[in-house]
Nucleic acid binder design. Structure first.
Length: 420
RNA sequence: GGAGGCGUCGCAUAGCUCGGUCUAGUGCGCGUCACUGCUAAUGACGUUGGGUGUAAAAGCCCUCGAGGGUUCGAAUCCCUCCGCCUCCGCCA
């Protein structure tokens, strides 16, 4: 949620940047108009309540004989206050409704446009793998190695699920441990968070109400299955006030992620690129506002280094403003070359949400004169399923075996995965 | 799942019986100042968060787990929900 007070103080500072994301100036005008009306009603109601309290105090101090007369006289206060407040709450509901549709103010340097293709390449890493044979995709490789069973997963759970078997399991654990060790060394506290949360955490992270159709819900218990550890990691500090010296506060959460993938029929239907359930190590940072852009670069660099450390080739792109999630002011995606698909695909992503999430989460920190909203950032340390795809396809050999990246060998205890 | 108890301004507590002087008391902690070779001790003042307001302030409103209700008036009475604790049942 954007800063309403700041908007009120200087609307024009918001119009231009938000227009880049498709927010009409008229929307802002409507919001400000409602806001002004609302505050007018609020002031009236406050003044009345002050009067009412004053009067109530007199009744309390009056002698028992005087009381009935005063009580009779006090009559209409609550009715009048209630009328004003009812009117105000209608306006407030409308105001919130508008506010929830307004995305974060983008960074001035984030590229224009709204399509994938409008993203701007920032850097490359690794070398593009070459093969003196026709490289297979991860499905063919996984089945040949006996480590991936999709057909039976369909039988058990339907489409977009998979069984990982044998070396794929150890590869997953190795990737998780490698990513976790790397970010822990960089100051992120490892966390295994709950994967079922209440709606507060989802509203706070702005997945609700916007992305309700992507989220699994358990209505019996009023809980939701999270699509990323970002949700519980953000939820951890709902309604808290940090001391300034606690920041930056960095976490690395491992969790299974659940996504309905509604509306993606026919997209990435083969293999485990887009599935309903996968595991992920997610970084989450709470920082002071003045530090968030440095932190954003830091997360991006960590992501790049983790992937290039696996011997993968890819590039980092700066996502166009129209393609950002509502919360993000700027986002870097890291795309890895997948030889089986002959294209770059998104493996990780780092977003600076500035104060947009934090305001909804009511997370702030103490300053010399009061409190200020913190900034939050999140970034993928390792999306395990997709990284498995990249490792299999990049390091495949002519004989159908796959070399284990050197950094994973200590965790996996082998140098090569071979067909059974 | 069943029975009972509890939730107060950083922490610990008072207040709830019997609604009004609670504008929430006290201790600890923390901050500023005074006294002071230094430290300690002592004293004074301040110390939840949010909103509104303003050049800045003052002022005003809300906030006693959350939300409703009763009432002229709710920390206090009633209802629902959430959380914690104890006991029983079940369980990796």
């Amino acid at each position: 949620m954007i800063d309403l007070k700041a908007l009120r103080a200087d609307p024009d500072a918001f119009r231009g940047p938000l227009a880049r994301r498709g927010v009409a100036s008229a929307t802002i005008d409507e919001l400000l108009g409602i806001d002004e009306q609302r505050r007018g009603l609020m002031t009236q109601a406050q003044d009345l309540r002050a009067e009412q309290k004053q009067f109530g105090r007199r009744i309390g101090q009056a002698s028992p004989e005087e009381r009935p007369a005063l009580i009779a006289e006090s009559g209409t206060f609550s009715a009048r206050i209630e009328a004003l407040e009812t009117e105000e709450s209608v306006l407030e509901a409308r105001q919130t409704e508008i506010l929830l549709t307004i995305p974060n103010v983008p960074h001035p340097s984030a590229p224009d446009g709204s399509a994938d293709s409008d993203a701007v390449e920032v850097e490359q890493f690794g070398t593009k793998p070459t093969f003196d044979f026709d490289p297979l995709d991860h499905v063919a490789l996984g089945e040949a190695l006996g480590i991936l069973d999709i057909e039976r997963a369909v039988k058990v759970s339907g489409s977009r699920f998979a069984f990982l078997l044998g070396d794929a399991v150890f590869l997953e654990f190795a990737l998780v441990r490698y990513a976790m060790d790397t970010i822990a060394a960089a100051g992120h506290t490892p966390v295994i968070p709950p994967v079922l949360t209440r709606d507060e955490a989802l509203f706070g992270t702005a997945f609700l109400p916007g992305s309700a159709d992507q989220i699994y819900k358990l209505p019996e218990d009023d809980l939701y299955l999270v699509g990323t550890a970002e949700v519980p990691l953000a939820g951890m500090h709902i309604d808290e006030i940090f001391e300034a010296d606690q920041l930056p506060l960095r976490y690395g959460g491992f969790s299974t992620c659940f996504r309905r993938e509604a509306g993606t029929y026919g997209k990435d239907t083969s293999g485990i690129f887009r599935v309903h359930q996968f595991d992920k190590v997610e970084m989450f940072s709470w920082v002071r506002p003045e530090d968030s852009w440095d932190e954003h670069v830091r997360l991006k660099d960590l992501e790049r280094d983790i992937l290039s450390g696996l011997g993968l080739h890819g590039r980092v792109v700066d996502i166009a403003v129209g393609d950002l999630g509502d919360s993000a002011a700027r986002k870097y995606d890291t795309e890895v070359w997948l030889p089986g698909q002959q294209q770059y695909r998104e493996l990780t992503s780092a977003s600076n949400c500035t104060d947009y999430q934090a305001r909804r989460l009511k997370a702030r920190y103490r300053t010399s004169d009061g409190t200020e909203t913190v900034h939050t950032l999140n970034g993928t340390a390792c999306a395990v399923g997709r990284t498995i795809i990249a490792v299999l396809e990049t390091h495949q050999q002519a004989d159908g075996s796959v070399l284990v990246p050197e950094v994973l060998q200590p965790y996996m205890g082998k140098e090569r995965m071979v067909p059974a």
